[in-house]
Amino acid sequence: MRGVRRRAEELSDEQRRSLATFLLTVAGADGYLDGEEISILEKIYDILELDADQVHQDLHSLSAREPGDMDDGPVTVIEGEEQETYRVPDEEEPTSSEEDPSQNDAGGVNLDLERVSEVQDETQDVARVLDDVFSDGEDEAPAFSVDGLTEAHESLLMDLQEKEKWERTKFEELAEDHGLIPGFAIEQINDSAFEVADEPLLEGEDPIELNSYALDALQS
């Protein structure tokens, strides 16, 4: 191995990077990387004087799907490192980026409009999925809650409307007066509020606040 290490020292940084990535793709060519393969890759990274932890980040970028990547086109196995991969290593190039207008944008923003619209499509798609979750009436009533609210709840609600904010202890006394267990009453009332308004009626720990939007919806 000593010989390998010595020869590795002669490689340029770029050559080491592309060799490492190449080996990573070879190791994963069968679709899986097992533990032994990963530990060998970690050693190779070490020989190449690359950070061994980089293996996991490189593997991650190969494995993670690029969101918006919904087309059926050829699969990107590995992103090409443009310009760099095919450059003859030792050739000196004049650094004339300031004279070349196309190079001015190098650090800037070049949005791929096609990608933007793919991402927007996928975002719309996920928004639909989430809208179904967050704004619907599909929720089944919890197993042990009563259908709607009892008279005790309704009279408690009548009393609560007097104020927008209730101190916790005052609220608890009031609930007890109506023969209700405070924590349970809040949950039940809020369940009903979620059903009609998609929002809770009683919010906060202390004080407890009445949400006027949900109150209007409950009353109608």
Binding site: G31, S61, R65, E66, L111, D112, R115
Partner: peptide, 28 residues
Amino acid sequence: NTFANEEYRDLTGPVIRLASLSPEELYV
């Protein structure tokens, strides 16, 4: 499955990998 793609991506396994954001995603 190491090399994920749209066709073979396996979300039935317990691991979900998140790619870092791209400029296009940041824009959206």
